[in-house]
Write a protein that binds this DNA or RNA. Structure first.
Lengths: 106, 106
DNA sequence: AGTAATATATCATATTGTGATATATTTGTC
DNA sequence: GACAAATATATCACAATATGATATATTACT
């Protein structure tokens, strides 16, 4: 999938959770709760992706960080990327919904 | 990402396009148009994924198929999967939007 | 003191996606 | 009726991503 800055699902989910300061474990729990258990990201994926998001400077290590927990938050750039993603994803959901409601059983 | 039948982005996009009978090339164009060029799936990804969706029986080879074009459509099972996906994706978009609109620049 | 929950981390592997490329057919046009 | 451009499908080898298994340390609870 080639795009103007397209995120994978997992990246999107994690960034969606980081509009507020959260640490890795909290992100995992939030995603699981928000989707009622339908989506869950394990630690391997979690920390792999966090590393990448840091490198891209879409998230940063936030103050609340103590020796035990590392708290992250979207950067301004990250917010913009997320906003763009939300827009694109909404378009595709609209397309899917329109098609589905036509009840086009051919 | 572990789930009750989670689709990758590309799979989702392609299935979203197949609520009506379409052939591969048409799917590619539709996705590009619907997202205003922001998302584009090339032939390699397209046909790889179509093969997988056929095997899963989420899409099937539809009648309109002539010797030249192969037309596909969602199966009933495929519709259900897509419906479930739309639900989950909406939840995550809502989460992202709520976070974003708080304008929480800490 | 012992155990469950919290929290981060990594490695090797599995899964998924894609650029490059090939081929055939149809359509338009000079 | 020759040629180019657009349409349409297909595959391979490689790149990018995600993940199960596992390890380790700290905190909370009883």
């Amino acid at each position: 999938m080639k795009t103007t800055e397209q995120l994978t699902d997992s990246m999107f989910y994690i960034m969606a959770a980081l509009t507020e300061p959260r640490h890795g474990y909290a992100i995992m729990n939030l995603i699981e709760e928000s989707t009622k258990g339908a989506v869950s990201i394990g630690p391997a994926s979690m920390y792999t992706i966090i590393k990448k998001l840091l490198k891209q400077e879409w998230i940063y290590l936030h103050d609340g960080t103590d020796s035990r927990r590392k708290t992250y938050l979207l950067t301004e750039k990250g917010r913009e990327v997320l906003e763009g993603e939300v827009r694109i994803r909404k378009l595709m959901i609209t397309l899917a919904e329109e098609g589905l409601k036509k009840e086009g059983k051919v």
